[in-house]
């Protein structure tokens, strides 16, 4: 599904990713862990195509396509979803309107007919319920006045509505209390655990991985994957820290 080869990327002319390679097959959940500043968020932004994040070497293939040749909105329509570490507040734009237009823009990009207002609301209601999010909140402006945890849950509602093939979730667990963590974990499983889908979880903590069990765990340090293992690697990291393990 996703094949990253020897990826080098700079931000403001500063090299951040320095030869990162990673392959993810459909049906798999991968976790990336690593110290602050290692380049984890940079990786997610490079995959999403954020302006200012420049690829200087390497390639990324997503479901058979050259991902890096696509515009950000085309990557979304192709099935890529980023859960943001810091979801952006957009004053004045209602969550419902934003999501409906986004879903329909994606459908248009794929040559599918748009969702009617009624069908969209039904879908939104269903996904909000899955994440135990009050539908009233989704009538408010996008992320404005949401707590940290509500923002992360709202990201997962968006993921549910957009139904991507690959979700890259950047510290979706930070800012969540224990109950919210379970709800989010179950939401990820319900939406993304399927043979034709995959998840890349960026996290600092073992606790999310208790709910969403990874098939592979990678350590990202200094802009590269320095170690790869199974779920036990996450426990090892939790116990001994990055320096000892990587």
């Amino acid at each position: 599904m996703l094949k990253i080869e020897n990826l080098h990327a700079t931000v403001a002319d500063k090299p951040i990713l320095k030869g990162l390679s990673l392959s993810i097959n459909a049906g798999e959940v991968h976790a990336i862990m690593g110290p602050n500043g290692a380049g984890k968020s940079t990786l997610s932004y490079v995959l999403g195509g954020r302006p200012g994040y420049e690829v200087t070497e390497g390639s990324v293939t997503f479901m058979g396509q050259d991902l890096l040749a696509l515009e950000p909105h085309e990557r979304a329509a192709a099935g890529l979803f980023l859960g943001f570490q810091y979801p952006v507040e957009i004053p004045g734009v209602s969550f419902v309107q934003f999501m409906r237009e986004s879903a329909n823009a994606q459908r248009k990009g794929r040559g599918e007919p748009p969702l009617s207002g009624g069908d969209f609301l039904k879908l939104a209601r269903e996904k909000a319920a899955l994440l135990k999010m009050d539908m009233e909140m989704l009538k408010r402006p996008v992320n404005v006045g949401f707590s940290g945890g509500e923002k992360k849950r709202a990201e997962m509602v968006q993921m549910g509505i957009l139904n991507p093939s690959l979700a890259v979730l950047d510290e979706t667990d930070s800012g969540l209390d224990i109950d919210a963590l379970r709800v989010v974990g179950e939401g990820i499983n319900a939406t993304m655990r399927a043979n034709d889908k995959a998840v890349l979880l960026i996290t600092h903590y073992q606790r999310l991985l208790d709910y969403v069990q990874p098939d592979f765990v990678h350590v990202l340090a200094g802009g590269r994957i320095v170690r790869t293992g199974g779920p036990e690697l996450a426990h090892e990291l939790e116990e001994h820290g990055y320096e000892a393990v990587a």
Binding site: P51, P72, H73, A76, S102
Partner: peptide, 11 residues
């Protein structure tokens, strides 16, 4: 915000 909206699929 523009990137956030684009990432959700908006041209």
């Amino acid at each position: 915000a523009l990137f956030y909206l684009a990432q959700r699929g908006l041209p």
